[in-house]
Design a protein around this nucleic acid. Structure first.
Length: 1017
RNA sequence: GGGCGUAUAGCUCAGCGGGAGAGCACUUCGUUGACAUCGAAGGGGUCACUGGUUCAAUCCCAGUUACGCCCACCA
């Protein structure tokens, strides 16, 4: 079963994927031999997703930890699964339906549409999990979870309880008062027509304009506007009949409720409390709004006066709430100017009555009013903006400024022209965009569900602060704290269909005192029908319940049936009382459900074995980009629901970028597809590359060159194993690694011990790159470059005992390489493990991870091999520098060797001879002419080069070495001559320096003697 | 505006209080029976700048400069 000449990654990967799966190698608890458990929750990729570099990185790290713990005998679970990804999935399916010429989702209806989504999921939803398998991810795929599993409309194959868990959590949190419904200003995505959370908004700087408009004072009043400089000198004084407003969003003027100025702003003091006119809309119905004071306006910015549009701006919202300013909603769900409701004339009249205090201030009524002038209704918000600007300018209410520009006449002569133009500042402004839709987000005043994060945030902060959960690298804890300490209510309702429908039903309120229900609705939050009907019965008494799909289905103004449900009235009329009930049509934010991933996948709320065993989980491995989205929310949710932290450690890794450091993105076209890379270089190479570059807390710039390098590393391991195989040094069942007699074998055994310690300690600290680099240096640098080379004369020589021992040790060393490399490079190592022996007890994936360490290190052998290696290196170096042909063999002469050096030489002579390409050894007492001397510890060696050596070359070589030593000696003696150093530095440091100095001086002496000899030639 | 981070070899980056490192690239040599997806030998760095702490600073502290990221409502 000789190994093929080269490693065929593709076929080995295909083979082992199947074998591992068939043998259940990755199942929870596989290979467990101790009580400790180890559990990782995969960050669930979107079902719509395909594996990108970030996934490859993230999952490679998880797999390394998982495989490592499994080999160490932990009861291991790596829980896989996918996220239903509300918006993303709905978007994909809608697009697909459109392409296929189907009806849109609204025409199709909710039921039908969801069927389509499930169909899509069945067809394409498994892609990314299959891709994880290609990477070699050793998840327990038999436990694959899905955040929508167990949903009422889920088809076969999507059983599970995740949906139940989500609904149950909602109900519990609702009952505890942690979730509430409220009318608040939220970020609205006009493309998807849904609310989104703050985190789903990306603020980007775009080129914008700031317009300056005049809001005329009511009734033609005037005041003296005075502007002063810093010293109090008057710089401007004029009579004005208007107040000047600056805005970047003129279309929202239609919904202004007031103009605010700073209470300290003396310029406007004369007109505070007066009314001014919004200069748009039909002239006969211009609305007058009050000029108020508020702390919010900055007197030094713009004109110092701010229009307050509470329903379309977050700042204005706060001001409006403080000042009880009406908030008029102007737009529909698509971001177009509203066209519902009464005519503008009617609405404006009512609004004016409210502003004048003649009509009661009723928030609900105000929210329903449509103050969009008739000629603006139905316009897109950006068209409306243009129209507002044009109308105001045409009417002469734009603030004008003088502007000088250069014009050219017909003859090309330039001249300066001063003209009066509308004051429009071109300036960059921050604009919010939907992270998925990429359209401009609109603040909208709507009824939404919120998690009262203030009430659940503290345990999540405490858990990290007191170290129960550790975030690595530590600096990310700051980011975590900062966000949590400034947390806003979390809007969790989405006006989508794909997701967990909110388990709340509405019915008419019974809260009436006079036989007429008030405007409130009654809420019924229930996890199941039984509970719902219990609640209904309790609330309404003996009535018939009419379940509707939506409020619209009631098909009646709500007041009508509210009136009818009064039992007393019904009794009087002798009519049966029918109560219409409808369910909230909205679904939950996807992150609400993924926030429950740890307990949800383990079977909560049932007390499953898995939950008891694996929760809290050990480590979460994730990118910093979802610390807020996911990590913080999992912390809050798990603590709120089961009062336990979800994981002990959160390891936050960097983002994978392209080789220039740019974020990989489809639009930039710099995306490296991990699957293509796997095909070209093999999964092991991709994995090793990512691991070697996984230094904590920095971006990871990936280049294919690097991957090719690590592919070569795999080849190197393959070839080393082939070498061992050719020399009958594989698969030898060596139960105990000790008992070697030969120095080189003792030495390599110790090196293996060191490497195991290095790998383990690196992985314990999540220093993946250290583990990879330690293995790389050991396998390539120590085993291949030195041990294999040193083995050759022993394996091919006549000393049967040496040969036999070396075969055993080499076989063991190769096995250890395979074991230690397996977590990072699972395929090639498993392949070699199988190929080198028929009698392995277990697959490599389940082979026991070694525990040996320093006891394998033989200090004597170490010293001796260091001596041998440095001798070989010195000879090689001299050979090249002196231009000795690589193939030429030279005799070696020993000179002034002490016993230790002589012994080391004798014991390792065949190896030295071979690696340094020597031919014959003799001992001399004088350096012959034409020979170069090489100082070694405890002696010197001479190489006769030819009859005439190149004197100049030798002089150069010697003086170069001496210069280096001189520098070292100067440095060391400088330190040692400093009494403060000797007095204050630790003794071992001082001793180290002394020894270093002595060695350098000894070598220096030998070199200068050599130099004298050469000079004498 | 606030916060965080990064400046080390030509490139990409490790390291981090007592000897400046790796990979790639570069130079020279090499068909040595594992491997040319290789081997051997090399060249290359005031560890951004300025101060401070220390016996000792690339490393710790402060400041400066440059770049990057995150958060944020200046109309």
């Amino acid at each position: 079963m000789a190994l093929e000449k080269t490693f065929d990654a593709a076929s080995a990967e295909a083979k082992w994927r199947v074998v591992w799966e068939e043998e259940g190698a990755f199942k929870a608890g596989a290979n467990a031999s101790r009580d400790e458990t180890f559990c990782i929750m995969i960050p669930p990729p979107n079902v719509t997703g395909v594996l990108h570099m970030g996934h490859a990185f993230n999952n490679t790290l998880q797999d390394i930890l998982t495989r490592w713990h499994r080999m160490r005998g932990f009861d291991t679970l790596w829980q896989p699964g996918t996220d239903h990804a509300g918006i993303a999935t709905q978007m994909v399916v809608e697009r697909q339906l459109a392409e296929a010429g189907n009806d849109g989702r609204r025409e199709m209806g909710r039921e039908k549409f969801l069927e389509k989504v499930w169909e899509w999921k069945a067809q394409s939803g498994g892609t990314i999990i299959e891709q994880l398998k290609r990477l070699g991810a050793s998840c327990d795929y038999s436990r694959e979870a899905f955040t929508m599993s167990g949903a009422p409309n889920a088809p076969e194959g999507n059983e599970g309880n995740f949906h139940d868990a989500v609904i149950r959590v909602f109900v519990e949190m609702y009952n505890k008062g942690l979730i509430y419904r409220g009318k608040r200003l939220v970020n609205w995505d006009p493309h998807f027509e849904t609310a989104i959370s703050d985190l789903e908004v990306e603020n980007k700087e775009v080129a914008g304009h700031m317009w300056h408009f005049k809001y005329p004072l009511a009734g033609g009043q005037t005041y003296t506007y005075v502007e002063k400089d810093a010293d109090g000198n008057i710089t401007l004084e004029e009579e004005r009949d208007y107040i000047s407003i600056a805005t970047t969003r003129p279309e929202t003027m239609l919904g202004d409720g007031a103009v605010a100025v700073s209470p300290k702003d003396e310029r406007y003091a004369p007109i505070v409390g007066k009314l001014c006119e919004i200069p748009v809309g039909p002239k006969e119905h211009r609305r007058l709004i009050p000029i108020i004071t508020d702390e919010y306006p900055d007197p030094d910015f713009g004109s110092g006066a701010v229009k307050i549009t509470g329903a379309h701006d977050f700042n204005d919202y706060q001001v409006a709430k403080r000042g009880k300013i009406p908030m008029y909603s102007l737009m529909d769900t698509k971001g177009a100017m509203r066209s519902d409701g009464k005519s503008y004339a009617e609405e404006a009249t009512i609004a004016q009555a409210i502003a004048n205090g003649d009509q009661e201030f009723d928030e609900a009524m105000i929210a329903a009013m449509n103050l969009v002038p008739d000629e603006y209704r139905g316009l897109d918000r950006f068209e409306a903006r243009d129209k507002v600007v044009a109308d105001i300018t045409a009417e002469g209410n734009a603030v004008m400024i003088e502007q000088t520009r250069t014009v050219k006449d017909e003859d090309g002569n330039e001249s300066q022209v001063t003209e009066t133009v509308p004051y429009v500042e071109n300036k960059p402004i921050m604009q919010p965009f939907g992270d998925r839709s990429k359209v401009v987000i609109e603040p909208m005043l709507t009824d939404q569900w919120f998690v009262d994060t203030d009430k659940i945030v503290q345990p999540a902060i405490d858990a990290v602060r007191n170290g129960e959960t550790q975030i690595l690298p530590e600096r990310d804890t700051k980011v975590y704290f900062h966000w949590l300490e400034n947390i806003e209510p979390w809007c969790i309702s989405r006006q989508l269909w794909w997701g967990h429908q909110i388990p709340v039903w509405y019915g008419p309120s019974m809260q009436s005192t006079d036989g007429i229900a008030n405007q409130e609705l009654a809420f019924f939050c229930a996890a199941d029908e039984e509970s719902l009907f219990d609640q209904l019965a309790e609330y309404y008494g003996e009535v018939s319940i009419l379940q509707l799909n939506s409020r619209e289905q009631a098909n009646e103004p709500i007041e009508n049936f509210r009136f009818a449900i009064n039992k007393g009235i019904a009794d009087k009329l002798g009519e049966a009382l029918i109560v219409p009930i409808w369910r909230d049509p909205d679904v939950l934010d996807t992150w609400f459900s993924s926030g429950l991933w740890p307990i949800g996948t383990l079977g909560w709320p049932e007390e499953t074995e898995a939950l008891k065993k694996y929760f809290p989980t050990n480590v979460l491995i994730t990118g910093f980009d979802i610390i807020f989205f996911w990590v913080a929310r999992m912390m809050m949710m798990q603590l709120a629901v089961v009062d336990q932290k979800p994981f002990h450690t959160v390891y936050v890794h960097a983002l994978v970028r392209d080789e220039k450091g740019k974020k990989m993105s489809k639009s930039l076209g710099n995306v490296l597809d991990p699957l293509e890379l796997i095909e070209e270089y093999g999964a092991d190479a991709v994995r090793f590359t990512l691991t070697a570059m996984a230094a904590m807390g920095r971006d990871l710039k990936l280049s294919t060159q690097r991957i090719a390098g690590y592919r070569n590393f795999g080849t190197k391991l393959w070839n080393a194993t082939r070498f061992a195989e050719m020399n009958d040094a594989v698969g030898i069942d060596v139960s105990q690694e000790g008992s070697a007699k030969y120095t080189v074998n003792k030495w390599i055994i110790g090196e293996v011990g060191r490497t195991r310690i290095a790998v383990d300690s690196a992985l314990e600290q999540y220093r993946f790159n250290d583990a990879a680099n330690a293995l790389y240096a050991f396998v390539w640098g120590t085993v291949c470059d030195w041990y294999v080379e040193l083995c050759k004369p022993l394996l091919q020589g006549d000393d049967a005992a040496a040969k036999a021992e070396t075969q055993k040790v080499l076989s063991w060393v190769i096995d250890q390489c395979l074991i230690l490399m397996h977590p990072i490079m699972p395929f090639i190592t498993e392949e070699l493990w199988a190929a080198t022996s028929d009698t392995r007890e277990k697959r490599l994936v389940h082979t026991d991870w070694p525990t040996y360490g320093t006891e394998l290190i033989d200090a004597e052998a170490d010293r001796e091999m260091n001596w041998v290696v440095s001798l070989i290196e010195s000879i090689r170096s001299v050979r090249t520098e002196m231009g000795v042909p690589a193939g030429a063999k030279l005799p070696l002469m020993l000179l002034e060797m002490d016993d230790v050096a002589q012994g080391a030489f004798d014991r390792n002579q065949v190896m030295i001879a071979r690696l340094a390409r020597l031919d014959g050894v003799s001992t001399i007492s004088d350096v012959p002419k034409g020979a170069v001397t090489i100082p070694v510890e405890g002696g010197q060696v001479c190489l006769p080069l030819s009859d005439v050596i190149d004197v100049d070359a030798e002089k150069a070589r010697l003086s170069k070495s001496m210069d280096k030593l001189d520098k070292e000696i100067k440095q060391l003696s400088g330190k040692l001559n400093n009494p403060k150093f000797v007095a204050n530095a630790p003794e071992e440091v001082v001793n180290e320096n002394r020894e270093g100095l002595a060695a350098a001086e000894a070598e220096r002496a030998k070199l200068s003697a050599a130099m004298e000899r050469v000079a004498a030639l």
